[in-house]
Every structure is written in C-alpha cells, then in structure tokens.
Nucleic acid binder design. Structure first.
Length: 305
DNA sequence: TTCCAGGGCTATT
DNA sequence: AATAGCCATGGA
C-alpha cells in the first residue's frame, strides 16, 4: 500500500486519483499570505503534522501528476504506523478518496459551472481533518472579514498551539482542545474574539475533552442530518457553521452553506446579477448540482480571489 | 464615514 | 414565524 521512496522512511509516495491536480490545490493554499498552519515554498507545501503522539514536519510536492511525494523534514524516520497515519491525514486533507467524475460530468454540461471547473481543473476540496480546528476556524470566520479571521487564528495558535523551528522558520499546529482549555475567556477576548466566539470555542474544547463531542462520534451517526442537529445544539453554532464543518471536515459533498456571504458574491458575479441572490434563487441554481453542493461551493469560492 | 465581511443570538412584533 | 439590533474588528 505504502511505497517508500527510500529505505530511511523519510519520504514516501501517495497515489492520486483521476481528476486530481496538485497545482490548483497549491493555488488554493497560497490564496492568503496570513495562513499560519502551513507554508508554501515554490511548488511544495510544508506542514507540521501530529502523528504517533508527536510532531512531524513534512513537505509535499507532486513532480508527476499521478502521485504526491511526501518528504519527512523532521521527526523521521517514521514507523510504519506513523507513516500510515500521515498517509491517511494527507489523503483526507486533499480529499483523495472521492470520485469526483460525476461532479465534472454534470458541471461540464452546465453553462454556469463549465467555465469554473475548467479554470480550476483538478482542484479538490481542501479539507480540515481535525474537528476542533475546523469548528474553531468556522466560528472565528463567522461574520468578520477573512483577513481578521486569519489574525484571530494566528493569535490563538501562537498562544496555545505547539510549534517547531526548522531552518529558521517556525511551523505551528492548531491547539488541541486540552491546550485551548487553558485559556480564559478574558484571554481570548484580549485577542479580539467576541465574547460569543470565545465562549463557543471554550465550550467546544470542553465537550471534546470530556468526550461529549468527537469526530468519530459524529461520523458514526451516519446521517448528516443528525450530525447537523448535534452541532446546532451547541451555542454559537448555526446552520452556516454546521454545513461548513460537514463540508470541510466530515467530507459531506452535499453540505451547502447557503447563507455564505462569499458564495452570494460569487453567484452574483457568475450570473451577472445586480444584487445578491435570494435563498430561493440559490436553491434553484444549486438544484442542478444536487449531491455536489459542497464541491460547487468550494469551486465558486475560488472565483472570488 | 459608511458598509460589509466565508453568522448567530436575543428581544420584540 | 419574521425581523431588527447587537457583537467585534478592520478592509475597502
């Protein structure tokens, strides 16, 4: 299954499916210069992963179209189990398990979507496999402009997350729930989170530490409607956040954050509307893409930058 | 200055 | 059920 490129265990290869290209994914990663959880360098991305209870810095590139090459920069060589864990994370990160041919088939016949999938050919939904990170990122992103959301994420990450220095650069992990739980509401508020955002992520951290909320538990529910109800029961999580997490973390390709301001702007541009589309107009537009709402949304987001 | 961001809660009708 | 006001900040 895993094909080491050498005998040291310090690099390995991940096969990629049809309709995958690394370049548009790299373009997505490079969309903001404010991101603190990975770094882009040329045609590669570096990220600090949490595997086998420790931190491993990896660099990923794709010299050929059919595979990713993962180099372990620090923390290697990996045990077989650790390599398996990193492998699993990265496959999920790039959504490599999904057969997106049906999406490309319907998009290719769709006058509105055709140009978009051509422009970003091979792009996958870049996921946030870590549930806590995904929930917090969604909460931080509620209502505020993305630049400010990145600033808040960086402050929280620098204050409570693990980090590692390599060749003069610092790489960071988003805090684990246990780590964030050491924060006080006042501390988070001093980072310019609203009291509501602060209380919400503290409560999410508490629930995850107590075992009341987990990624495995949500996935075990099977039905995404049940997952949504579970998430909506948390104060500070509404429909947008629930769908965002379904889409970015849980791999639900039919998640549809219909209230998303960015999506509204993307659709307004796409259709040349004079004002933002109504919910009814959005539902009508997306009805042609049923089952692939998350992919349509992700691709439309890309048209904004 | 004003508007609005990859929303959600609360109080008021 | 529907809706205005509020939160917090900063880009444009």
């Amino acid at each position: 299954m895993l094909k080491p490129l050498d005998m040291s265990g310090s690099s390995f290869e991940i096969k990629t499916p049809e309709l995958f290209r690394f370049a548009p994914c790299l373009d997505y990663f490079a969309r903001s210069t404010q991101e603190c959880l990975y770094e882009i360098q040329g045609d590669s991305i570096q990220k600090l992963l949490h595997v086998g209870g420790r931190h491993v810095l990896v660099s990923i590139q794709s010299p050929q179209d059919h595979a990713l090459e993962v180099k372990v920069l620090t923390g290697g060589p990996l045990t077989t189990e650790e390599q398996e864990e990193a492998h699993t994370y990265i496959r999920e990160w790039f959504d490599l398990e999904r057969d997106i041919l049906p999406f490309y088939y319907l998009a290719g016949k769709d006058e509105n979507l055709k140009g978009v999938v051509q422009r970003f050919y091979g792009l996958r939904i870049i996921r946030i496999p870590d549930l806590f990170e995904a929930l917090c990122w969604a909460v931080l992103g509620q209502q505020v402009n993305l630049s400010f959301a990145y600033t808040m994420k960086r402050r929280v990450t620098e204050a409570f997350g693990d980090s590692l220095e390599w060749e003069g650069r610092i790489f960071r992990c988003f805090p684990a729930p246990e780590q964030l739980l050491t924060a006080s509401l006042e501390e988070l508020a001093s980072m310019k989170l609203s009291r509501m955002k602060s209380a919400t992520i503290l409560e999410i951290a508490r629930m995850m530490v107590e075992g009341e909320l987990s990624r495995e538990g949500l996935l075990a529910m099977g039905e995404m409607d049940l997952v949504e109800k579970r998430l909506l029961a948390i104060r500070g999580i509404g429909p947008w956040t629930a769908h965002y997490v379904r889409m970015r973390c849980l791999g639900d390709q039919s998640a549809f954050p219909i209230g998303d301001a960015g999506l509204h702007n993307a659709v307004r541009e796409l259709l040349g509307l004079s004002q933002k589309p109504s919910a009814a107009e959005l539902r009508h537009l997306f009805s042609a893409w049923k089952g692939w709402e998350a992919y349509a949304t992700f691709y439309l987001w890309r048209t904004l930058y």
